[in-house]
Design a protein around this nucleic acid. Structure first.
Lengths: 190, 190
DNA sequence: GGCGGCATGTAAACAGTTACATGATTCC
DNA sequence: GGAATCATGTAACTGTTTACATGCCGCC
């Protein structure tokens, strides 16, 4: 656990980055399966610095702006590798608010439930389009720069693509289930 | 938010229950999409009592055993209905640890990643079998007793079945994605 | 007599969330 | 001049998790 810690270390393995860089990167990639607020990112970076897993320096053309750039240390790299060696043995405990609401929806007006499901359907369809528009290779080149092309583009891009495919498969499954559920509810006599 | 509160109120709408009853019920139903530890259940019940949403009495053949039975109040029922009226407008922020690990797996030995995915595949298959073995009607009868048959069995059972179908669809999607990912990894030259 | 299940709690730690707060730059 | 974006942080809260803790009952 403490996923954010390893997400930050994971991105810093590519190159030194600021908190803001990391926020943007996460929003466009891992945030789809592990969200983080900027407040948590900044505080965690400071904490990692305290643990000696990263170092930071103020950089930029004008130092007043306080662009604090974080760099992975050897200890941070070792910590990341240790985390990667620990195989995940459990299934996560899912948190699906819509299912909780649906589970107890027996006493609600059917029209309300249907409206809620249709809204979710719309949101899920939007999310699917967002996933379809993501280009992992482009993102990788942005973070790595031109010289990265040869170094990790091949190995990383496959894994990034796997997670993206999961996102697409998940949304499609969700949409199909919503459609089936909506149709089933519509067909029920009151 | 604060899902557990409404899960507890939702179950207590059927009939008075103890903390332990609720723990068992949750483990066998809503726990699949919103997990809760007994420690949280007991403390939340006390909190709900403080808010006047439930009342509790010590019951049983021997009162020393301290089986504390909680009953929904009118205020609790109103709170539940209010929660049900607030349509869910957002998508939940997913938390998928496996995807995070996979995202940063570029530097790991392929054999390790494959082993991790195969273990997850096994766990997911087990979970799918668990879902297939669940009988929502049986669970409903157990919680409601014989006189419940006419009151809510019809309306509730449909919704309970929807959530179960989601669980099955989710695990199947996950298995298919794992199989595809594993096959893709196996076919990659090192 | 011991083990597993029943049954109920408390306390502490921690991750994640929300709210508050500030200041520079860039574009219209 | 004002709005949006860049950029960084602190403080407080709260839900969740882990660990600690106790005692009865029924069965082998």
């Amino acid at each position: 656990d403490f996923m954010l810690k390893h997400i930050l270390l994971g991105f810093l393995r590519y190159q030194p980055l600021t908190g803001y860089d990391l926020k943007l990167l996460i929003d466009n990639s891992t945030g789809h399966f592990w969200h983080a607020y900027h407040s948590q990112i900044y505080t965690t970076l400071r904490k990692l610095e305290g643990e000696g897993l990263v170092t930071s320096t103020l950089e930029g053309p004008d130092e007043r702006l306080g662009r604090r750039v974080y760099t992975l240390t050897a200890a941070g790299d070792a910590e990341l590798q240790q985390w990667q060696r620990n195989t995940l043995t459990e299934l996560p405990q899912g948190k699906e608010e819509l299912l909780v609401r649906l589970f107890f929806a027996g006493s609600r007006p059917r029209a309300d439930v249907l409206a809620e499901l249709r809204l979710q359907r719309q949101k899920r369809a939007q999310q699917l389009e967002i996933y379809k528009a993501i280009d992992p290779l482009k993102l990788l080149r942005e973070i790595g720069g031109p010289e990265a092309e040869s170094r990790w583009l091949n190995s990383e891009s496959h894994y990034w693509l796997f997670t993206l495919k999961y996102g697409v498969a998940f949304q499609k499954m969700y949409l199909a289930w919503l459609d089936e559920t909506i149709a089933s509810l519509e067909g029920m006599a009151d």
